[in-house]
């Protein structure tokens, strides 16, 4: 599917071993600009390791990562998995500071206006002046997403952003992500929640034992026997 377009983010034969354990083994794929790519796989299948390799938090043993054609494999960390909120600052200031020191930062007034819009996108405009320490977990996640967007990343890497949320909150979060998707940003999403992945992603890739098992449109991939096998075991795949 992505063969006809030059990918914004390109992975070539990425491999990472921890001791004798091959966590990621020769994984290659492209992410097109504006695409939302879902990474699925059972626990221990190497999703988070792969994300860390892309983010530069881990060094790959082999393989290349390219962003817009430029080799970024061995550059220092580009994103941080753990967003650390500034707890005494207000929600707005948290987003504002990220906007002011992000890519293509505008002047203060414009940055403030954009930050308020981002708080609107994630649905907590009403809490703009509340200190981050006073927000609930869900609200803090929203601030984190707004902060991530405020830095105007070329690619947004999200590692299980829906973890720990109840079904109502998942629905609310899905609405936020739909708006992010519609804004045209490129996203690589690691997520266990199959419903969320189906609703959001243009394409998904399933990893198992650190290898790229299958990729394609969400509905096709999720119906494939080898995917069901990877998730539920062989017997259930036969049963299907």
């Amino acid at each position: 599917m992505s063969g006809d377009r030059q990918g914004l983010l390109q992975l070539e034969g990425l491999t990472k071993a921890f001791g004798g354990l091959l966590a990621v083994s020769r994984v290659s794929f492209d992410v097109a600009e504006g695409e939302i790519l879902g990474l699925l796989g059972p626990n221990g299948s190497g999703k988070t390791t792969l994300l860390n390799l892309v983010a530069g938090a881990l060094r790959a043993d082999e393989g290349r990562v390219r962003l817009a054609g430029r080799d970024i494999t061995s550059l220092p960390a580009r994103t941080f998995q753990l967003v650390r909120p500034l707890s005494k600052l207000s929600a707005l200031d948290n987003v504002l500071v990220a906007r002011l020191y992000g890519r293509d930062a505008p002047g203060f007034t414009a940055a403030r206006r954009e930050s308020l819009q981002l708080l609107d996108v994630v649905g907590i405009r009403g809490k703009a002046d509340a200190p981050a320490a006073h927000l609930t977990l869900m609200e803090r996640k929203r601030v984190e997403i707004a902060r991530a967007l405020a830095t105007q990343p070329r690619v947004l890497l999200l590692d299980e952003p829906l973890a720990g949320l109840n079904p109502t909150e998942v629905d609310a979060a899905l609405n936020i992500f739909r708006r992010i998707r519609d804004s045209g940003i490129t996203v690589v999403l690691v997520e266990h929640n199959v419903r969320a992945v189906r609703a959001l992603c243009h394409r998904i890739i399933v990893l198992n034992y650190g290898q790229n098992v299958v990729q394609g449109a969400p509905d096709d991939v999720l119906a494939r026997p080898e995917v069901i096998e990877a998730y539920l075991g062989k017997a259930s795949a036969d049963f299907q």
Binding site: F80, R84, L86, R147
Partner: peptide, 10 residues
Amino acid sequence: DDDQAATLVG
């Protein structure tokens, strides 16, 4: 507020 978190923001 938090100099490490501030560094992370850039």
